[in-house]
Amino acid sequence: MSFEPRLVGFLCNWCSYTGADLAGTARMKYPPNMRVIRVMCSGRVDPNFILEALAHGADGVLVLGCHPGDCHYAEGNYKCRKRLPITKRLVEGMGIEPQRVRLEWVSASEASRFSEVVTEFTEQIRVLGPLKLEDWTFDRAAADAQLEHN
């Protein structure tokens, strides 16, 4: 049996969640691998949530928010846009492929984009294979070198 990734999606209530809703009502097809957690804003996505999801066995985490400038809360998605790269670096430091965490913009009317993003992300994770956390050991020297490098 082929590998079916388990994905967690954090969807902003106003754009992406509505977009996902629309994809549903429009009967658009997308892989069932992603489980959705609704948050009010992509700015609510605490990096801890992403780590928690990965720790609990998610193979990838997708964060979807409103397009820049369209945030229901004016600038929540900008906060998210700042936080995500840091989170990715953090994840990378833990030996996890940073591609397993992704931020995308999906507006309320972009049902087709939603299904495309989910499909593409699922395929990407499928290629990456399951996340094996037990492989990871903290390499202090490498981490320090990385810090030095940055």
Binding site: V39, M40, C41, R44, V45, D46, P47, H72, Y73, K79
Partner: peptide, 10 residues
């Protein structure tokens, strides 16, 4: 407050 949660995440 509009409950966006940006503060809670930060």
């Amino acid at each position: 407050c509009k409950a966006c949660g940006t503060c809670a995440a930060g």
